[in-house]
Simulated scan of single mutants.
Amino acid sequence: MTKILVTGARGQLGTQLLRRGATLGLDVVGLGSGELDITDPDAVAAAVRPGSVVLNCAAYTAVDAAESDEPAATRVNVDGPRTLAEATARVGARLVHVSTDYVFAGDATVPYEPDAPTGPRTVYGRTKLAGERAVLAADPAAVVVRTAWVYTGTGSDFVATMLRLQRERDHVDVVDDQVGSPTFAGDLAAGLLELAGRDAVRGVLHATNSGQASWFDLARAVFAAVGADPERVRPCGTAQFPRPAPRPAYSVLSPAAWATAGLTPLRPWRAALEAALAEVPAVCD
């Protein structure tokens, strides 16, 4: 059985990979940032084994903080992935590196294909794009998987925040001028584990739940799913919530290359949301 190493394993995606890998009976080991510094060549060399698959979920994801701390973002999003890719190429392991819709400008009107022109507008996006390029330069057999709007419904992600706010507030204002594909981390994890078993697949792919929605649409769907009145969610514009890092207005990623590679398409986002909420039943109390 191929050994799978998950880096960044304490985050929402890494946690789902470990859970689903165990359910499938796979040999999956997870290391968080406190257990493996992916920028340390010696530590990485000791962790990466010949013939294994490395699923890299480690990333600097504090989008706003990155605007004033580019060196830290570069270290984790560029130097770390490069170090992993150098190690996998050296010992004959396989690297699957998770990236983001933020590598695009967010000004498209049709879903982005993997080879669409990039144009990140944030430090986070620029460092993630540089990380992609570093990975593919160091290990041409690696796979980069871009995703977007990932959630589990726990912790502090958008869905979890809406679950909390529907209990605490009479009304919630949510932006309706940013569009993407809400993606349940559990579904993405299942897709990545399937990809881990496809040695011939390489290059850049996109993986999100299918369909598209605004944050406003997603918030209303969350309210409705737990029996709260969706009319309590009110639309507003991005300008109402200024942030240090601009958010992409359009983040829909095309699944065509994923399907062409013979991988199972991720289900529609509304069905995925229902499944995610079923895993956190306490929110309905």
Rank of each mutant, 00 (worst) to 15 (best):
P41G: 09
G262S: 02
F104E: 02
G180H: 05
G197C: 08
V172T: 01
A272D: 02
A282R: 12
T122F: 00
G30K: 08
G155N: 01
L218S: 03
T147G: 05
G155C: 00
A73V: 07
V226A: 07
G32N: 11
S254C: 01
Q16P: 10
Q178P: 04
L273C: 01
N56R: 14
A257R: 13
Y102S: 13
K3C: 15
L136T: 10
P268D: 03
L26G: 10
V252R: 05
V233C: 05
F223Q: 00
A85Q: 11
T208I: 01
S99V: 09
V179A: 04
A45G: 15
T23W: 14
S254H: 05
F241M: 06
L273Q: 04
D64A: 05
R220N: 06
P117V: 06
R198D: 06
A276E: 06
Q178R: 10
S99A: 09
T122A: 01
R121D: 03
A225P: 03
V76Q: 14
D107E: 09
L95Y: 15
W215R: 13
P111A: 00
R169L: 12
A9C: 11
V145T: 07
R82S: 15
A185E: 05
L266N: 03
T260M: 15
I4V: 14
S156W: 12
P117R: 06
T161R: 12
P246C: 03
G80I: 10
A134Y: 10
E168K: 09
R49A: 15
A257M: 07
A58D: 13
A239Y: 05
L31A: 14
R19I: 14
P71Q: 07
G92I: 09
L163N: 01
P41V: 10
A239I: 09
L266F: 04
A59R: 10
G155F: 03
E113T: 13
R126N: 04
H171T: 15
G131M: 08
P140V: 06
F241W: 07
V172P: 03
G11I: 02
Q240M: 13
V48M: 13
R232P: 02
D42S: 14
L18R: 14
R75H: 13
A148N: 12
P268C: 02
L18S: 12
M162H: 03
V76G: 11
P41L: 10
A142Y: 11
P120S: 08
Y60L: 11
V204W: 08
A62N: 14
T88N: 11
D115Q: 12
Y151H: 07
P120I: 04
